[in-house]
Every structure is written in C-alpha cells, then in structure tokens.
C-alpha cells in the first residue's frame, strides 16, 4: 500500500499545481458567495478534464509515463488514484470554507 501511495504521489506532483489552482479558484468563489457548491464541483470536474490536457501537452510529463509503467502501474489507474485523492482534499477544503 505504501508503494502505491508513493507512486501516486510522484504522479500527482506533475499535476498538483494545476489541481490546487482550480481548487482554490472554486473555493474562493464559494467563499465569496458567487458560486454554489454544485457549480464548484462542476468547475472541479472541468479542472480534471483540463489537467488531462495539461499533462498530455507537457512533453516531459507524458514521457515519464514509462517510469510509472515500469513501476507496474497503468496511467489510467494513476489518474483515478490522483483525482480521487485530490477530490478528497477539495471536499475537505470546501467544507471548511463554508463554515462561517
């Protein structure tokens, strides 16, 4: 399990800036009352779609897929783990932001 967490973390590092930017963008507008929670989730889902594009367009990131495959993991599986973990963080942060 530790092995999977470590590999997922290395994979997540290539997306973390983008994922957090989208999260903070959505949370900020929820906090300001300009976005409801449902819309924030939709923004986050679009963020994941764009993250796929960001990583695909980043030449070095797509080349590093071979490292993760050599570690025994499919890239789709790592996306599921990464987005799952990121979404969990997002839910925690957005819950905290709505406590007033």
């Amino acid at each position: 399990m530790n092995y999977t967490i470590r590999i997922t973390w290395y994979f997540y590092k290539s997306l973390i800036i983008w994922c957090l930017l989208v999260s903070f963008f959505a949370i900020y507008y929820v906090f300001e009352g300009e976005l409801n929670i449902a819309l924030a989730f939709i923004v986050k889902i679009f963020g994941y779609a764009s993250a796929l594009g960001v990583r695909y367009l980043n030449y070095n990131s797509s080349k590093t897929n071979f490292y993760f495959r050599n570690a025994g993991y499919s890239i789709n599986r790592l996306y599921v783990y990464t987005f799952g973990f990121d979404f969990l963080i997002f839910i925690i942060l957005i819950s905290l932001s709505t406590i007033r």
Binding site: R6, Y10, K13, S14, N60, K63, T64, N65, F66, Y67, R69, N70, A71, G72, S74
Partner: peptide, 25 residues
C-alpha cells in the same frame, strides 16, 4: 507486459520524472 511488473522497458528517450530524489525513484 508492464502490469504487475512482469516486463520493464527502456525507451529511447529520457523517462525519469523530475523533482524526485534518485534514491526514491
């Protein structure tokens, strides 16, 4: 082949991710 680490592959291009200590890789 790569599933469950049955087969490993060296591509022609560089493939190691940046920003991670070599010992951790």
């Amino acid at each position: 082949g790569y599933k469950n680490m049955r087969v490993a592959y060296l591509p022609q291009h560089n493939y190691l991710p940046k920003g991670i200590k070599i010992k951790n890789l």
